[in-house]
Design a protein around this nucleic acid. Structure first.
Length: 210
DNA sequence: AAAACGGGGGC
DNA sequence: GCCCCAGTTTT
């Protein structure tokens, strides 16, 4: 069988295309920047099911930033308990909310520089806000994106930030917005960290991992 | 019972 | 870069 020789850019296009047949691009909490930010903090080192449940619990009771900043911390902790790391996350959410109200008029900044200055917001979380709330081109690199990109030989990097830089070079900009969400779903269901289900992988023809 | 897991921060 | 943090899931 003829082995296709694709450029890295062509590989990205193919990967997005194939994964897009399998998974839907999700729209997180109606692109409300504050809710996206909170949901993303809740998602840190956490699976989707638990993230979604915690997000529902929290915003089911407290509607916006002003209600959350005044909410009792133990109640917030209880509502988001199912997402794990709930004490840290509750503290971060309340701290960030306070800062946004005090310094940004209750709005979420739409640029990387100001976002990463917020406590509990690193590069991955900030990029998620830019992509999912503001629809700006950014590539949130979590461990799924980092692992998969390296596993299939798309990049050869050591840190997530290096992966972000390399992916930005080879991926067409209009695809950036899809990369994280597709790879996360792929990483949770097929290209898993420990036991990848290579037999049902839609992109095995461009991957020699197995 | 470990070890790993959709990060972030402090040093 | 290394280590710590801290609930949950997987091995």
């Amino acid at each position: 069988m003829l082995v296709l020789e694709l450029t890295e850019t062509e590989k990205v296009i193919k990967i997005v295309d194939e994964l897009n047949k399998l998974y839907k691009i999700r729209e997180f909490v109606n692109k409300d920047p504050y809710k996206v930010l909170v949901r993303t903090i809740l998602s840190q080192r956490t699976r989707d099911e638990n993230t979604d449940q915690a997000t529902k619990n929290l915003f089911g009771k407290y509607k916006n930033i002003y209600e959350i900043v005044d909410a009792p911390t133990d109640d917030v902790e209880e509502l988001i308990r199912c997402s794990g790391f709930y004490r840290v996350k509750a503290a971060r959410i309340k701290e960030v909310s306070r800062i946004l109200i005090d310094q940004y008029g209750g709005e979420v900044p739409d640029n990387l520089k100001e976002l990463v200055e917020l406590p509990g917001v690193g590069r991955k979380t900030a990029n998620c806000v830019l992509v999912y709330a503001f629809e700006l081109p950014a590539i949130p690199v979590d461990t799924h994106v980092h692992r998969i990109s390296n596993r299939i030989g798309l990049v050869n990097t050591k840190t997530p930030e290096q992966t972000e830089v390399e992916l930005a070079k080879i991926a067409p900009k209009e695809l950036w917005i899809k990369l994280n969400d597709l790879m996360v779903q792929f990483g949770q269901t097929i290209c898993k960290p420990m036991s990848p289900q290579c037999e049902m992988c839609p992109i095995s023809d461009i991957c020699d991992y197995c």
